[in-house]
Structures are given as C-alpha cells and as structure tokens.
C-alpha cells in the first residue's frame, strides 16, 4: 500500500537553495520525432549515445522527447514547468512542427510551447509562413517564438526576415534566438548567423519585441567563452534583451563547471541577474535536465547568489516575461 502511494503520489516540486524551496522553470526543452531529424544529425546524435542506445536510437529518442518523457525528466529534478520548442531546421537538427508541439503541451498543464516557422523558400513562401506562425501563437499555451539563424540559414541582419520579429512583438511572444556556433552538422557557423550584434538593428527597430539570447553566445565548436561578451553587451544596453544559459555548462562542455560559474559571477557583478532566464536545452539524455539544473544551482552558489536572486533566474523572470499563471 505504501509502495503504491509512493509510486502514484505527485513528485515534490522545487529545489532547495540556501534553506529556501525555489520554483524552477526550464524555458528550453525539445520534443520531436526521430524521422523528422536530418540524416547527418541522426548520425551525430547516435554517436553521442552510449552503447547500446545508438543501435536503436529511434525508440529511445521518441520516448525521451514525448510529453510523458519530458515530464519524467522535470520530475527527476523537481522542476515545476517547461517550455517545448518547435524547430524548423531541415538543414541540421530537423523539424518539430508547431502542430506537434501543441499536441504535446495539450497533454500536460506543466508544459508550454514555443512556436517557430520555416524560412526555407522565404522569398516565395514567407507570407504563408508568417501567417502560420501567427495562427500558432493564438493557441493560449504557445507563448513565444524560437529562431536559430545558424540552423535555419538566414542572416540576423537581413531585413527580409524582420516581419518575424514584428509579428512576435505584436503577439507579446518573446523571441528566443540561438546564438553562437553549434556543433551540429549542417549549421552555418559564419558571423552573420551566430553573432547577435548583427541583430542590433532589429533590436532597436522593434523595442516592443523581447529577445532572449540563447546559450549566451557561447562557442560550442571551439569551447570558448570569450564570445559571450557580445551577449552581455547587448543585455546591458537594451531593455528588450534577455539571457539564457542553456547547454554550455553541461558535463561535456564544462566538466568542472567553471564556465557556468564565471558566467553567473559576471552576471551578478554587472547587475544582469534580472535578465537571466534558466533553460537547459534538454532533455538530451535521461537525467540531463536534473543534472543541468543542479549544475546551474552550484554555479549560482559559487557566485554568491542569494535565494531571491536564484529564484529570479530559475523561475521569477520567466513567469513575468511569459506572463505565466501561478502553478497550483
């Protein structure tokens, strides 16, 4: 009977920090289906799986990336809620459509969706894609827009794509921007596609649009953090810029946790804590979300964050920026 109760009872959400229990929201999670990942990225992902998972990656990936799988990952780390991203990147990581994301988030009151759009054939189909994005954003749980210029191959400074930022602003949907070069095959690693300084014109032109700079400009290819100054510079200069520290503090990118701790230290010393929104870029592999949350908490502790400051990063700013209701 006790076993039954233990197995069926709701997990205790929140993490302990400096004697306080804090809510955690992961603003960067992926969902999808194996068949919609490009062949090159399928091989890349498979090569990163421990044996024997790489022999049958499809079942593992689809189980981990389902709404149920992601909730399991949130539970492991005591995370309250998570945002699932639509992705339209056929040249690299593949496609996870708005419709698929909506089908996942409708299964749980702990999951929200971040919409996206295809920029392939933009000259001929841009209007149609904008219309589809606008429609997706009318869903009450689709609360933001995700763009990854390096994965989607479009320049950050090309005005042809500025209507995306305008549309997002009109819908009060913050735009998540992947910054910095990515290790995935098929990405465009040249400066206009990875460096948010190229986005500055759009940032100024659409002050009502909120831009979240994902990965904080970290260079995943050369494993260098000096490019992060670009993101800090923009966050300090513009009210509509936010920072998201996903992935670069993982065990593989930052084994000792030094890069993450340095980032949190810089953010605190330069009064940017209110600009930070926690995300993991999970689920990646079972246990990653919980582990990444723990690593961020360690980094904040090393950087001397108070419990209030940690809660700002872990959930407070996300609740305000995305206008989330309190979770029961």
């Amino acid at each position: 009977m006790i076993l039954f109760w233990l197995a069926c009872s709701a997990p205790e959400l929140g993490i302990m920090y400096d004697g306080a229990r804090l809510d955690v929201i992961d603003m960067h999670l992926h969902t999808g289906e194996w068949g919609d990942i490009g062949e090159g990225s399928q091989r890349y992902l498979t090569s990163r799986f421990p044996f024997p998972f790489g022999l049958t990656p499809e079942s593992l990936v689809e189980d981990t990336l389902s709404a149920q799988g992601i909730q399991r990952e949130l539970d492991k780390g005591g995370l309250e809620r998570g945002f699932l991203y639509s992705v339209y990147a056929p040249r690299s990581v593949g496609v996870s459509t708005n419709e698929f994301v909506i089908s996942q988030i409708e299964q749980s009151d702990r999951l929200y969706g971040i919409a996206s759009l295809s920029v392939e054939e933009w000259e001929n189909q841009g209007e149609e894609q904008l219309s589809a994005l606008n429609e997706a954003l009318q869903h009450p749980k689709m609360i933001g827009v995700k763009l990854a210029h390096t994965h989607q191959h479009f320049r950050m400074d090309d005005p042809r794509y500025y209507p995306i930022y305008e549309l997002a602003g009109n819908n009060q949907a913050p735009v998540y921007i992947h910054t910095g070069p990515s290790p995935f095959p098929g990405t465009n690693p040249t400066e206009p596609y990875i460096n948010p300084l190229y986005l500055e014109e759009a940032i100024e032109m659409f002050p009502q649009t909120q831009f979240v700079l994902g990965h904080m400009c970290y260079d995943f290819i050369n494993r260098k953090s000096d490019t992060m100054e670009r993101c800090y510079e923009l966050a300090a200069r513009y009210d509509n810029i936010w920072l998201e520290p996903s992935a670069f503090g993982s065990r593989s990118s930052d084994p000792e946790g030094e890069v993450l701790a340095e980032a949190y230290t810089y953010v605190k010393e330069n009064n940017l804590i209110d600009k930070m929104i926690f995300g993991s870029d999970g689920p990646q592999s079972p246990g990653f979300v919980a582990d990444y949350t723990e690593r961020n908490i360690d980094a904040m502790s090393r950087a001397g964050y108070t419990a209030d400051e940690a809660e700002r990063v872990l959930s407070g700013t996300a609740k305000e920026l995305y206008n989330l209701p309190e979770y029961p």
Binding site: Q42, R43, T46, S47, G54, L55, T56, P57
Partner: peptide, 8 residues
C-alpha cells in the same frame, strides 16, 4: 563475423 544495422 560482426554485423550491425542501424545508423552506424
């Protein structure tokens, strides 16, 4: 003999 299917 070793034979393996899948992505690799």
């Amino acid at each position: 003999w070793l034979t393996q299917s899948g992505p690799y």
